[in-house]
Design a protein around this nucleic acid. Sequence first.
RNA 1: GGAGAGGUGGCCGAGCGGCCUAAGGCGCUUGCCUGCUAAGCAAGUGUGGGAGUUUUUCCCACCGAGGGUUCGAAUCCCUCCCUCUCCGCCA
Length: 423
Amino acid sequence: MVDIKALRENPEEFRNALIKRQMPTDLLEEILNLDEERRRLITETNQLRAKRNELSREVAKLKKSDTDASTLIEESKQIGERIKAIENRLSEIDGRVNYLLLSFPNPPHESVPVGKDETENVVIRQWGEPRRFSFEPRAHWDLGPQLGMLDFDRAAKLSGSRFVILRKELAQLERALINFMLDLHTREHGYVEIMPPHLVSRESITATGQLPKFEEELYNTQPDDLFLIPTAEVSLVGMHRNEILFEADLPLKYVAYTPCYRREAGSYGKDVRGMVRVHQFNKVELVWFAHPEKSYEALEELTSHAEEVLKRLKLPYRVVELCTGDLGFAAAKTYDIEVWLPSYNDYKEISSCSNTEDFQARRGNIRYRARDNSLRHPHTLNGSGLAVGRTLIAIMENYQTEDGKIEIPDVLRPYMNGLEVIG
RNA sequence: GGAGAGGUGGCCGAGCGGCCUAAGGCGCUUGCCUGCUAAGCAAGUGUGGGAGUUUUUCCCACCGAGGGUUCGAAUCCCUCCCUCUCCGCCA
């Protein structure tokens, strides 16, 4: 959530933020108009309340001295009615302003390249070389079923399209990847491992920014109105909702493995084959609560932690900085990590690392007590470390052999009982 | 699902119609003292909002959430949410 005070004092900056994001600016104008009316009405009710409080004190005095106070009481009553009338209008405005503020995207950081869409993202660095195959490489959606280890048909029977069943060594490899990633981040990168709930309340998921604007992307459960998390970021950030942290404890670094559930409502034509885009996938997620002055260093560090997974798996990747037009709603700055996929003959997103600055902390009322005793919002960062399903795809396709088998990357063999090849 | 208890500042906890401008303690900050640390002593320390000033300030709201009663609510009434204990069911 943006800071209404900052918005009021510097509307031009926020208007530019919307323009850079290729978004209409009408919600900004509406907020400014309502905010002005709101402040006028607040001033008015404050004055009326002050008057009423004064009358009340006098009534108390008169009653003590057994004097008639009916005139004052009558006046006080009338003031009460006026207050109520204004309050009705005020709560209407509050509701609307709040909704608009919750719908306002995070302004991009000044370092973010301005651009209209994903074609203007900037490649920052590249690691490894795509493998040159001496044969025609198979796509994972051919290779998996051939091995009898990916089953899209039965998954569709169970749940519909965009679901997948893993079998045998491929299921085991998915589990190995999860453990490998968790071990790396907890043992070498200093993260605290969390196993959080996958069902969260409306309030929790509003804090991270998925609500109120993107409800159609979420699975909602009734009658409890709980949401299946689209990413563990929701649970990890939400953990500290309405809390006051200690400055000395920052940064807090969490890692969690969870499944992620996404309706993929707007993506009917995209990635229709295979398990690149499915409604349920596993992910290991990294989240930081960082000191505001150190959050951009933190973003570099977090991104490097995600990259380290790919380096150890020896999977070629590149890091892309998203331009303003492609930036997610809650992010001030984002690096996407893209892994090489032979089936796409291109790099494909496998991690997205973002600094949301105080955007989520504000929405979630997460603060910390600074050394001078003041309260401030920490910055929150999140990144996949990594999307497990897509990592599995990358291994299948990049490590495949001519006879349709899959070599197991060295670092995963201890997690596979020493197995070297699948198939 | 049933019965009971409870939700008050960063934390613990008192208050149960106007003297609450929320006691007291812990913690935290600063200073003093001090081989270091700890202890001790002193002072300070709630949040949010509005108006003004940009140094000093004034006003309003907030005691789980929302309604209600009242001239006036942390305090009384209603609804809801959450936590804990016990019972039932259950992996």
